[in-house]
Design a protein around this nucleic acid. Structure first.
Length: 690
DNA sequence: GTGGATGAG
DNA sequence: CGCTCATCCAC
């Protein structure tokens, strides 16, 4: 009895609340609630602990529910004028904007298939210790998924090829592939995949038509803005479009062709068909799908179809020359392109016409949208008892912003298919580089540290030197060591990292060791630590191209201390070479030694010393390392004289601030989303308030 | 500079 | 409690 009372009471409250919420959110839509609310019992399997959750939903009564009104979606069929077509700087407002997202299918697995030359039909997975981290498409047919254990997967598919990712062990300068690496002694390396990723990216750069913008979005994805090349192609194909009637640039374009050949999957209103078609090999099919009533071909559709062909040929290049299978999505903005790419995979491309946006978006589980996959998405789902984009359309902008802060306009827009973020080329290198390792057998004595530090130093060294092949002069402002005890507490220590022309494992390890000493204890102590260390990581931070020209004439010396942050010593002398007076070695004891810590230039008779950054932990560096560094310094100093001889160098003021201004670090806009600055980032901020 | 949180894959 | 990697932010 009490139970049913309680349930009744609960339901009543819930209904009342839902009704209020509904009214609040849809004040002026003229929608009517159905008399009978639908009650759903949802067993949430994602949440832990598992629990039952009650969900109430009202069916829209009226045209919204029945006829798929697209009223929430605006601008699906904008008028396109001559001015639009002929203008060159419309950016994200261009009504003919065409964006693609291309990602590699099961990338790590693809890499291994290429490396090993295995049959494309061969089921293959990539493992990391006992877990599977990548599953190629042939093995997906066996129901193998990402986090499965190797053992389980093999049971399901005896024929399975299992490749363990490359690993380092101490003493290795490069990662290698081992049959059965031991997690106690090895650490994994994803380097091979990074390199392959760069290859693909470069291949795209070469194969795309001029004017296309390319943005590497992750190790296996890139965005491409086809707007410009597509516009040019349109003008080639339809020359009459270039002839605006005199004085009538703002009149709409003449009617577009009535049919378009789609060399791609057309994202359709009927997902059922897709399941059926999903088995076909390469689904580059022309689907003359019956379209919803009003979907006449628009100029934007034509633009999409042109991009489809461009994307296809770039993908063909990657496939034939590098052996990687990719999938692409093409739509009016980045967000939709990304969504569209997942429509059908692998080895396929899909296109989302504007007219289809509402149909595709409404039933889409919004937690699959980038940045809504985590806690934020969960909070939103819970707050509004929502699971699909359609559910969220009922939430007003005000409501979002009340609950989730100003920035949540981003969500409001995204569920309406609006995304103004630009495709922007990013610097080829990331700002930080890290190597980390969970320790299955924890470190209990501080003398065990150097072992792992060496392993990680080897990896970082390789990666930094690798990155320098692309961007010479790259150097990390700091190096950081962090350790974790148990599952929570982490400690980190960081220190400046010197510019070294040749970064060696020894130098990096020495820096790491020094940090270890500060963080944990003496490098040779066998005294048991009070708390076991279960995790270590070594990372370079603030990795940026120093302001050097190719030959390093200015080197780091004239620049390193003038980075935005003030250094203690601004050692710029008049003729832009640094002549340092070596400070008394920070660790006291022996002073600077000639030919190790400094040298005297016999041309200018000046004393040239290693920079402070280096001497800060120089006492821990072996002399060879310091000699290396000093050798670099000599070379640079000679370069300096050489350059001075050739011509007088430009003064500081004449010299451009940055040698490579192609990418500018965009300051994060807080709060305000003025014009086009809505790009999803920053929304997380709301979360900290909880 | 340090510690923590978030997220992707 | 995969594991690895990246980024951002409050303090």
């Amino acid at each position: 009895m009490w139970f049913s009372l309680a349930v009744t009471r609960f339901l009543w409250d819930k209904v009342t609340w839902e009704r209020k919420r509904f009214k609040r959110n849809s004040p002026s839509r003229g929608l009517v609630l159905t008399p009978q609310p639908r009650l759903f019992l949802i067993y949430k399997t994602h949440s832990r602990p598992r629990r039952l959750s009650l969900r109430l939903a009202f069916m829209w009564k009226g045209k919204s529910a029945v006829t798929d009104s697209d009223s929430e979606f605006v601008d699906l069929n904008p008028t396109i004028t001559y001015r639009h077509l002929l203008s060159h700087a419309l950016g994200v407002k261009d009504p003919l904007r065409v964006i693609a997202l291309c990602d590699s299918d099961a990338f790590y697995a693809g890499c291994e298939m290429v490396r090993l030359g295995v049959d494309p039909e061969q089921p293959l997975v990539v493992s990391q210790w006992d877990s599977i981290i990548a599953v190629n498409y042939p093995s997906r047919k066996f129901g193998i998924t990402r986090m499965d254990k190797v053992k389980d997967a093999q049971k399901r598919c005896p024929n399975l090829v299992v490749v363990h990712v490359a690993t380092y062990k101490e003493g290795d300068a490069e990662p290698e592939y081992w049959e059965n690496p031991d997690t106690k002694t090895h650490k994994v390396s994803l380097d091979f995949y990074r390199r392959e990723s760069n290859k693909i990216h470069n291949m795209f750069k070469e194969s795309l038509p001029a004017g296309a913008e390319l943005e590497k979005a992750s190790i296996d994805e890139c965005f491409i803005d086809f707007t410009r090349p597509v516009r040019e192609e349109l003008l080639r194909r339809y020359p009459h479009l270039a002839q605006a009637p005199p004085g009538a640039a703002d009149t709409p374009l003449p009617p577009p062709p009535t049919t378009v050949t789609w060399n791609a999957n057309l994202v359709s209103i009927r997902p059922k068909d897709d399941v059926a078609n999903n088995l076909q090999e390469s689904s580059t099919s022309t689907l003359g799908d019956p379209e919803p009533e009003d979907s006449l071909i628009t100029w934007h559709d034509v633009a999409l179809s042109v991009a489809v062909d461009m994307m296809q040929s770039a993908r063909d290049q990657v496939r034939t020359k590098l052996g990687y299978s990719t999938s692409a999505g093409i739509a009016r903005n980045k967000f939709l392109a990304k969504l569209t790419a997942s429509y059908r995979k692998p080895n396929s491309q899909s296109v989302l016409r504007n007219a289809m946006i509402p149909h595709y978006l409404r039933p889409f589980p919004f937690q699959k949208i980038r940045f809504l996959g985590g806690k934020l998405g969960n909070a939103v789902a819970k707050e509004y008892e929502a699971s699909t984009v359609g559910d969220l359309l009922a939430v007003s902008l005000d409501e979002f912003q009340r609950t989730f802060g100003e920035d949540s306009i981003w969500i409001w827009e995204i569920v309406r298919g609006i995304d103004r973020s630009e495709v922007k080329e990013k610097p080829p290198n990331s700002k930080s580089m890290g190597a980390s390792k969970n320790l299955p057998t924890p470190v209990t004595m501080s003398c065990e540290g150097p072992h792992w530090i060496r392993v990680m130093a080897a990896e970082l060294t390789l990666r930094l030197n690798d990155a320098r092949k692309i961007s010479p002069g790259l150097w990390p402002r700091t190096i950081a060591l962090s350790t974790r005890q148990g599952w929570s507490a982490t400690q980190r220590k960081q220190a400046p990292f010197p510019f070294l022309r040749n970064v060696t494992i020894d130098a990096v390890a020495a820096a790491g060791d020094k940090l270890w000493k500060e963080l944990v204890g003496p490098l040779n102590s066998t005294k048991p630590l009070s708390t076991k260390i279960t995790h270590v990581s070594l990372s370079f931070n603030g990795v940026e191209a120093g302001e050097v020209n190719q030959q390093g004439i200015e080197g780091f010396l004239s620049k390193a201390p003038s980075s935005p942050r003030k250094r203690k010593r601004q050692a710029n002398s008049d003729d832009e070479e640094i002549v340092e007076t070596l400070p008394a070695s920070s660790s006291g004891e022996s002073g600077p030694k000639p030919d190790i810590d400094y040298f005297i230039c016999d041309r200018c008779k000046r004393r040239i010393a290693l920079p402070e950054e280096l001497t800060m932990f120089a006492s821990e560096l072996d002399e060879d390392t310091k000699k290396d560094a000093l050798g670099s310094l000599r070379a640079e100093h000679q370069d300096f004289h050489f350059a001075q001889d050739l011509s007088k160098m430009p003064s500081d003021d004449e010299r451009p601030e940055k040698p490579n201004p192609k990418w500018t670090v965009q300051p994060r806009k807080k709060g305000k989303h003025k014009d086009g600055g809505t790009n999803g980032e920053g929304i997380e901020r709301f979360f900290t308030k909880r």
